[in-house]
Every structure is written in structure tokens, then in C-alpha cells.
Amino acid sequence: MNSLYSVTLVILLISLLMGVFRIWRGPRMADRIMAAQLTGSTGVAVLLIFAELQNQPAARDTALVLALLAMLVAIAFVGRVWGFSQEKKDS
């Protein structure tokens, strides 16, 4: 069973790296934010696997906190950064 979890982890880490690539590449800020959102969800999945793999129940609580706060960055981005830069462009 443990080796199965490890294989799942490796695939998830590859997915995480692809998300990092999209953040690096862009080209728009919105793409970076979406990639960050996806890596956040991948992180939640990794934490759930860690909880089983290491017999660490508190990892699930961490996943819960991460799931609750993952959208904060997106909201802050849409509300603050994006509109702001557009304003600057218009003027």
C-alpha cells in the first residue's frame, strides 16, 4: 500500500512542477494565479496522502486550512492587483 501512495505522490509532484512552469511562463497574471490555485489543490492532495503515508492525522487539518484559504490569494489578486494595473495602463 505504501509504495502505491509513493507512486501517487510522485505523479502529484510532477503535476506540481508543471504548475510551477505555468507560473514562470505566464504570460498573463491571470494564468499565474490559476496555476497557483491548481498547485494549491495539488498541495491539499499531497497532504492527504502524507496523512496516510506517515500516519499523521494532523496533516488532514493542514489540508483543511489550506483548502479554506486557497482562494484568498485569488480574491486579493482580482480585487487589488489586477484592477490596479489596469487603472495604471488607462491613465
Binding site: 490559476m34 491539499v44 482580482v78
Partner: peptide
């Protein structure tokens, strides 16, 4: 608890997808 985490991530990603599309 696991189902709750799934539901929260689902809502959060749907919401941020919507916000990005909207903006």
C-alpha cells in the same frame, strides 16, 4: 472531514475560476 475538504476545494476553485473569467 475528507469530503468537507473536497467540497471546500471544489467551491474555492470554482469561485476563483469564475472571478478570473469575470474580471
Amino acid at each position: 472531514k475528507l469530503l468537507l475538504i473536497w467540497g471546500l476545494v471544489m467551491i474555492a476553485s470554482a469561485l476563483s475560476g469564475h472571478l478570473v473569467a469575470w474580471e
